[in-house]
Design a protein around this nucleic acid. Sequence first.
DNA 1: CCCTAGATTTACT
DNA 2: GTAAATCTAGGGC
Length: 185
Amino acid sequence: MSTLPREFYLNDTVTVARNLLGKKITRCIGRQKISGIIIETEAYRHRDDPASHAHSRITERNKAMFEEVGRAYVYFTYGMHYCFNVVARSPNFDAGAVLIRAIDPDEGIEIMEKNRKTKDTKRLANGPAKLAQAMQITKEQYGADLTKKGSLFISEGIERPKVIANSRVGIRKAVEKKWNFKIEI
DNA sequence: CCCTAGATTTACT
DNA sequence: GTAAATCTAGGGC
């Protein structure tokens, strides 16, 4: 299974968020392999999006959102959680990223159970911080190239069922934008 | 099922 | 100083 090409991410962030549903994320740690199908995403853009980390200006934390598309933007929040994003934007935007909010676990479920200290498969990776913990994604993956088969990459997955659009979760600004996307497997 | 409180660090005002 | 793209445990229904 080949990875998604760089051009896949060089599109409107909202479009890429929809297109990422059903794709497969793989994380390789030594000989261990963890993977899952993306089932929930959210788009965060630039000046037109008050809820985005990139809304005001470039900083040490958000700089990945301004750099090469198809790379990882990982941030730390609430004093204890990492969240994983994919840098994506149309050519006429300066910044943008897609937050991966949930996956349907595929390979390496036992490893994820260990990482998450639970055997409840439904709750293994059904939230952005849970997913990062299950897949062992931390600041070390900041800027990782997801178009190459390294320790973290994204490839074709399943046929995408009907997409459900909603307001984004956990934000107070720009609540009217329906940039949260989900599929039901 | 629903709700609320508390954890705990960073980054920006 | 304080809000933050969150989660879990504990209580109630």
